[in-house]
Amino acid sequence: SSGGSSILDRAVIEHNLLSASKLYNNITFEELGALLEIPAAKAEKIASQMITEGRMNGFIDQIDGIVHFETR
């Protein structure tokens, strides 16, 4: 797709992000992006959206560029 990722790509990214949230206590956007094979800024945006929508527990430290995952 030309304008970003398809629905399937997005679903795969979100699935992998949720998997990462179970493996890590926290991770930088750079590391997360590398893990998900997407730019760091996109990793931040998707993580932020999932947390806001209540689909993933955690919070974002924008100063240090880190996602902190919280286990249920």
Rank of each mutant, 00 (worst) to 15 (best):
H68W: 15
P39A: 06
F29E: 00
M50N: 00
T28W: 02
L17R: 02
I13T: 04
I13E: 04
A11Q: 12
A20R: 03
M56S: 01
T28R: 05
G4H: 11
D64L: 15
G4E: 14
E31Y: 06
S6H: 13
I27L: 14
E30M: 08
S19N: 13
I38R: 00
Q49L: 08
A11T: 10
F69I: 03
F69Q: 01
I46V: 07
I63E: 11
S2K: 08
M50S: 01
E31L: 11
R10H: 10
L36A: 02
G3W: 05
Q62P: 14
I60D: 00
G3Y: 04
K22N: 06
A41T: 09
I63A: 12
Y24H: 05
S19H: 14
I27A: 04
M50C: 03
T71Y: 09
V67H: 00
A43F: 03
D64F: 15
S5F: 05
E30Q: 10
D64Q: 15
A40H: 04
E44I: 15
M50F: 04
I51D: 01
D64A: 15
L35H: 04
T28F: 03
V12S: 11
L17Q: 02
I60W: 02
A43W: 06
G58E: 01
S21I: 07
F59W: 15
E31A: 13
V12C: 13
I51A: 02
F29W: 07
L36D: 00
E37S: 15
S19P: 00
A34I: 12
S6F: 07
E70P: 07
I13V: 08
G58F: 03
L36P: 00
G54P: 00
Q49C: 07
L32W: 02
D9S: 06
S48Q: 13
I38S: 00
K45L: 14
I51S: 01
G33Q: 03
N26S: 15
N26G: 06
T28A: 04
T28G: 06
N16L: 15
E37R: 15
E37Q: 15
L36Q: 01
A40G: 06
S2A: 12
G4K: 10
V67R: 01
S5V: 12
I7G: 11
A34P: 02
I66K: 12
A41K: 10
H15T: 10
A34M: 11
G65Y: 04
G65S: 06
S2Y: 04
G65F: 05
I60Q: 01
S48L: 12
V12D: 08
R10N: 10
G54R: 06
K42S: 14
I38A: 01
F29N: 01
S5E: 13
F69N: 01
T71N: 13
L18T: 05
I51H: 01
L35F: 08
Q62G: 08
I7Y: 14
A43R: 01
S6A: 12
Y24C: 05
V67Y: 02
M56D: 00
L35T: 02
E14Y: 06
Q62I: 14
T71D: 10
Q62R: 14
F69L: 04
N16V: 11
E14F: 05
I7T: 11
L23I: 13
Y24A: 03
L18M: 08
Y24L: 07
S48M: 12
L36F: 05
E31P: 00
I66S: 09
E30A: 11
S6E: 14
F59R: 13
S21F: 04
R55M: 06
R10I: 15
N26V: 12
A43G: 02
F29A: 02
G3R: 08
E70D: 11
V67L: 15
G4M: 08
G58C: 03
S1L: 07
M56C: 03
F29S: 02
N25H: 12
M56G: 01
I38T: 02
L36E: 00
E53Y: 03
G54T: 02
I60A: 02
S2L: 08
E31K: 09
T52P: 00
A40D: 03
L8C: 12
R10S: 08
S21M: 08
N25T: 14
I13H: 06
E31D: 10
G33C: 03
Q49M: 08
Y24N: 03
E53R: 05
M50L: 11
L36N: 01
E37F: 09
A11C: 11
I7P: 11
L32T: 00
G33Y: 02
D64T: 15
L23Y: 09
R72F: 14
T71V: 10
A34S: 08
E37W: 07
D61Y: 08
S19K: 15
G65Q: 08
Q49P: 00
A20Q: 06
N57K: 14
E53Q: 08
I27R: 04
G54C: 06
G54D: 03
S2V: 12
A11W: 13
H15I: 11
G33E: 05
T71I: 08
A41G: 09
G3H: 12
L17T: 02
E70C: 15
M50V: 02
Q49T: 07
K42Q: 15
G33N: 01
E53H: 06
F29T: 03
I63W: 07
N57T: 10
L18Y: 06
S19T: 14
R10T: 10
A40E: 04
V67E: 00
S21V: 09
P39Y: 04
H68M: 06
F69S: 01
E37M: 14
R55Q: 05
S6N: 11
M50W: 03
V12F: 09
E31M: 10
S1Q: 11
A43I: 12
S2T: 14
S6I: 12
I63M: 08
F69A: 01
F59S: 08
R10A: 08
K22T: 07
E37A: 14
H68Y: 15
S1H: 12
T71E: 09
L18D: 03
G33R: 02
A43T: 03
N26H: 15
F69D: 00
G65T: 03
S21K: 03
H68F: 13
I38G: 00
S1W: 04
I51P: 00
N16W: 14
E30V: 12
L8V: 12
I46F: 08
I63H: 09
M56A: 04
Q62F: 14
I51G: 00
S19L: 15
